[in-house]
């Protein structure tokens, strides 16, 4: 049985098509990334899979339970960590956690035990009786995650769990996600942090304009765009107009300045390395480091979602 099974789901808001006939499945115990630009349909998909919104067409099952007709039974198996840290800031961390537990019908002794374990896990036990209005963004996020886990779910929806967080919170949350994987908990992760998806997900789906553009393991997706390999070089000293000069090397399709380094996008890294050496000699400068890279998941994302990298950032094509 799949943890999540989505069959031909569509969602229309008037004339706007938010989701257009999407299908995918997530195996039990899998960590599944759901990537897409803003407005691609990620949040709508999560709202349908958690039974908040009803699809216009198609159906979805959570551990075999139809999310529209067996909503409550399906929800009992899941924990939801919403994109916003939706905690009650007039209540303490402990009150927030106990409230969540009561919504899931968890008995007093069990919820108090789990509450303590979770607050300790997320480094909030010492602040359990403090009103959460005084918590930092990272602490609020950690509490939101704790509230989503109070029912020990078999499936966890994580909507942008680490967005804009401090290093400590990021590390704690990533450790928890890894721990899910070890315990066989299924994770449905939406994130803007493509590297995070690359490191944590067994498979990722890339959604764009309400349709699934690709779905596979990160490594297999990267292999689909071998034309986007790159060579990263650092020069000392850096001659004037280096970007323009490097762009003249044969087979270089694009040059990105990354701090004190330059990344040259190419489909032929060896030829580019020779070109860089020749350029350095001609400019009387030293090449102090050279690294080659295969395509990143971000490259796949950019290619499949129709985004275009410019000198000063990323813009949407349409």
């Amino acid at each position: 049985m799949y943890a999540i099974e989505v069959n031909h789901i569509s969602k229309h808001f008037g004339k706007l098509v938010a989701l257009n006939n999407i299908s995918f499945s997530v195996a039990e115990g899998e960590t599944f990334g759901f990537l897409g630009p803003n407005g691609a349909g990620k949040t709508t998909t999560i709202r349908i899979l958690t039974g908040i919104t009803v699809p216009t067409g198609g159906d979805a099952k959570i551990f075999g339970k139809d999310i529209v007709n067996e909503t409550i039974a399906a929800r009992r198996t899941m924990g939801i960590v919403h994109e916003t840290s939706n905690i009650y800031t007039d209540l303490s961390a402990w009150q927030n956690l106990m409230f969540s537990a009561q919504l899931y019908d968890i008995g007093k002794a069990v919820r108090e035990k789990r509450g303590r374990d979770l607050l300790e896990l997320f480094g909030l036990w010492e602040r359990k009786d403090d009103k959460t209005s005084g918590f930092s963004k990272g602490m609020k996020r950690r509490l939101t995650l704790a509230m989503g886990l109070i029912n020990e779910p078999r499936l966890v929806f994580l909507d942008e769990p680490t967005s804009g967080l401090d290093v400590q919170s990021n590390l704690i949350i990533r450790d928890v996600i890894r721990d899910f994987n070890a315990r066989g908990v299924t994770v449905f992760l939406t994130t803007h942090n493509i590297e995070e998806a690359n490191l944590t997900c067994d498979r990722v789906a890339i959604i764009n304009k309400g349709m699934i553009a690709a779905i596979d393991s990160p490594e297999k997706l990267k292999k689909t765009i071998q034309s986007v390999q790159s060579v990263e070089v650092a020069l000392d000293p850096v001659p004037a107009h280096t970007e323009d000069g490097l762009r003249q090397i044969a087979t270089v399709s694009e040059v990105r300045k990354l701090g004190d380094k330059f990344r040259l996008i190419t489909e032929d890294p060896p030829a580019v390395i020779s070109g860089v050496m020749a350029y350095a000699k001609a400019q009387d400068t030293r090449v102090i480091s050279v690294n080659t890279y295969g395509p990143s998941l971000e490259d796949v994302f950019i290619k499949l979602t129709g985004l275009e990298v410019r000198h000063h950032g990323v813009k949407t094509v349409d």
């Binding site: 958690t50 908040i52 919403h82 939706n86 009650y88 919504l103 899931y104």
Partner: peptide, 14 residues
């Protein structure tokens, strides 16, 4: 506004 209402309507109750 605080998005806590989503917490209520996504709980396993009617």
């Amino acid at each position: 506004r605080m998005k806590t209402f989503d917490r209520l309507i996504s709980a396993p109750v009617s």
